[in-house]
């Protein structure tokens, strides 16, 4: 089963890893911060080594985005960001795992203070017949 893990965040200035630029994360005691970073790196390494990680990318500053909207029958390009929302899509990971439980176990390690991590299933073109 494939899942995408979406990182919604608003690092200031925009940067990766996002935690380095989030006040909520920086406010944590050193040992807690070190543990969170360690847990994340450990699970990421594990995903890479066991072939559960399919891919992933860090995204650029939403200010660098170009938005295409449809106006009067033609596309109209406007400079980003997409919205004034508190959080933007900052990166994603694609995993292929045995079960939803395993995906949830992984995502828990991706969560951190000051941002929202979203787990979404991927649709497949197959299906059962009964």
């Amino acid at each position: 089963m494939k899942y995408v893990i979406l990182i919604h965040s608003n690092p200031v200035p925009w940067g990766h890893p996002t935690g380095d630029f989030l006040p909520e994360f920086q406010a944590l005691p050193d040992d807690v911060r070190a543990r969170l970073v360690h847990d994340f790196e450990e699970v990421l390494g594990e995903l890479q080594a066991n072939g559960e990680l399919v891919g992933g990318e860090a995204l650029g500053d939403p200010a660098a985005a170009t938005l295409y909207r449809w106006r009067d029958g033609a596309p109209l390009a406007v400079d980003g960001p997409y919205s004034e929302a508190k959080e933007h899509l900052a990166g994603f990971f694609l995993v292929d795992v045995e079960s939803r439980e395993r995906a949830e176990q992984i995502v828990a390690k991706f969560a951190g203070p000051g941002e929202t991590v979203e787990l979404r299933p991927l649709m497949s073109s197959g299906g059962p017949d009964q």
Binding site: Q48, N50, G51, L53, V54, D96
Partner: peptide, 15 residues
């Protein structure tokens, strides 16, 4: 067949 990159499948096999 499993719609993953060959690199991912190689990792799975190596592990």
């Amino acid at each position: 067949a499993y719609l993953v990159p060959p690199r991912t499948m190689t990792q799975r096999l190596t592990r």
